[in-house]
Nucleic acid binder design. Sequence first.
DNA 1: CGCTTCCTTGATTTATGTCAACGTGCGTGG
DNA 2: CCACGCACGTTGACATAAATCAAGGAAGCG
Lengths: 261, 261
Amino acid sequence: MGQRLVSDALYNRLQKLSLLEDEDRSILDRLLARVHDYPVGETVVEEGGPIARTRLILAGWAIRYRTLHDGSRQIVNFVLPGDSIGLYGALFPSSDSGVELVTDCRLAEFPCDELIATCRQSPRIGAALCWIGGQDERMLEQQILRIGAMNAATRISHLLVEIHHRLLLALQGREDVVRIPEQALWMPLTQQLVGEALGLSKVHVNRCCRRLVHEGLIEISRGGLRLLDPEGLDRFCGGERPSSTRASASPSLERGLDPET
Amino acid sequence: MGQRLVSDALYNRLQKLSLLEDEDRSILDRLLARVHDYPVGETVVEEGGPIARTRLILAGWAIRYRTLHDGSRQIVNFVLPGDSIGLYGALFPSSDSGVELVTDCRLAEFPCDELIATCRQSPRIGAALCWIGGQDERMLEQQILRIGAMNAATRISHLLVEIHHRLLLALQGREDVVRIPEQALWMPLTQQLVGEALGLSKVHVNRCCRRLVHEGLIEISRGGLRLLDPEGLDRFCGGERPSSTRASASPSLERGLDPET
DNA sequence: CGCTTCCTTGATTTATGTCAACGTGCGTGG
DNA sequence: CCACGCACGTTGACATAAATCAAGGAAGCG
């Protein structure tokens, strides 16, 4: 397992699945070799527009959102390093939601069709991507839980805990990686964005955030915030069970995917 | 294309994808041959429990839900005929959400692992199931949109419109099927359930429903409701774009999945 | 018959939204 | 360099959607 040039975040995540062979990694490396940089604010996918390419976030943050007729915008999900955009592009003619970058981003891009070919070539990669897709679905579930059943302050802390959790997985999934640097706790989340994600007005988000600041859980600065006490935040939102990210260690799964079978 | 003994709803949905060959259908038929009946209230999947089998709903309604520490329950999604339960069972050791039947149900069941083998056998079936999975994700998106960005009455009508839409797809997807019977518009949705799904108190759900009744859009009866005017409901919630259910007609997709390639 | 589940309605409370105003840092263009 | 605009954060006063509390009715069911 040599040094990875790109998509460390993805490999860190996939490590949990421990399904891929070296061969698969080189296939993935080739698939993800086409890297592009984009500036903040770029709309990578239009709402209702076609999905030309599948992308992987190598660095930066994005949002998936939908706009209502009254002009309000609902953020469906935050897209972090190691997350994919348009994973199902080959199967759907258009995207219901749009994707917009909230920081400068580095993306790996390739035509959707190539994913099909890659999965044919290595069923293990196919399974790994389904696993990623299943995690996406679980994150949406979490979001529904937050918005549907929690009050404002709890929603916010719960969201922060989830994102923190995801960042840890993406950034230090492997045991041999050094401890996460201070910077990792910084999040480019404006209160506006938090409001759009959680169905709250920015004014109310502000008031709740001030409370979290007052309790020493977070720190607010221009254009973002910093987690000071992740465990405290977790306690604050009642430690609602986060989505499990463990993979099935089923030996029959590996056998089933073994090409020699 | 002979008469289907089971899972008409699934075939109706898959028809939109027009990807499967007769051969695939007989494979699926064999996979789905194991049918079981369960009574109302049965908990098919425990929250946080293992996912022993993958299931397909042949008839009846279920809910996917999660329970919070304070005892409140959030319904994540309604599971209708043609929908799957535990599709990713082979990839995850446990289920975040539980599944409970809200009517008597007839389910097709098989061990999760068999799905892997089936996908190896027919990549077209694999693609079709990913397509189903992608639709599930889109439904969750819709749910987030409702809960996060709409007011109570709009949420309710939007939910009803979506379910109506899904039922139509499952029940009459094929052109050659007779018009949908009156019964199809009946839904076993108590106001309690609607509240748990949309993050509203049952009292408030009741008041909003009464309004919809007053406008002649729905009819309420013991243990459920009936859609009288789907188009009216759609207008009521501002006709927010429903999730597109069209499949990609990409010829390269079919080529990519062709075993002869 | 009594129990349970579901629907219904009124009175009151509360969480959150709206409106409005102001501060502040930051980039940009003159 | 300054001046301006802009995006973001902050705060107060007020409005309102929705929750809560409470009580009762009506249909199914054992």
